[in-house]
């Protein structure tokens, strides 16, 4: 199961090689998320409307390796934007992927940009 995680590595803005046009802004709920498919990857994308920011991370929860994070609620932990896994409520920073309420592996995060009506996610390849 662990090999799933190998598909996901945190991508920094400056390292982006491919900007993938995922969907339109209105396909995502305000202050919530939805899942985007890119090649073999599942990416959870969140429209953090309260911060006027977008975040993307792996959809798989490192706790039990289920593809569920996009269905989690978002919010903040002392100012750190986070997502809570719907299965056991493990929470992860959307900024750096860290598990905020446990010692799980950090999740991979990806840059998002909005151009016009479209949501793009940045990948290494």
């Amino acid at each position: 199961m662990e090999e799933i995680l190998e598909h996901y590595t945190t991508t920094k803005l400056e390292d982006v090689q491919v900007w993938f046009k995922a969907a339109s802004v209105k396909d995502f709920p305000k202050d919530g998320g939805a899942c985007v498919k890119y090649k073999e990857k599942q990416i959870a994308v969140f429209n953090f409307a309260r911060l006027n920011k977008w975040y993307a991370c792996q959809n798989v929860c490192p706790h039990k390796m289920e593809m569920v994070l996009s269905r989690g609620m978002i919010g903040d932990d002392k100012g750190m934007p986070k997502v809570a896994c719907p299965l056991h409520k493990k929470t992860f920073s959307l900024e750096n992927g860290e598990n905020l309420n446990g010692d799980l592996e950090a999740i991979a995060t990806y840059p998002v940009k909005i151009e016009g009506e479209n949501v793009y996610i940045g990948f290494l390849e």
Partner: peptide
């Protein structure tokens, strides 16, 4: 803040 999985539901 911006809410969380406790106060939202």
């Amino acid at each position: 803040g911006h809410g969380c999985e406790l106060c939202k539901p």
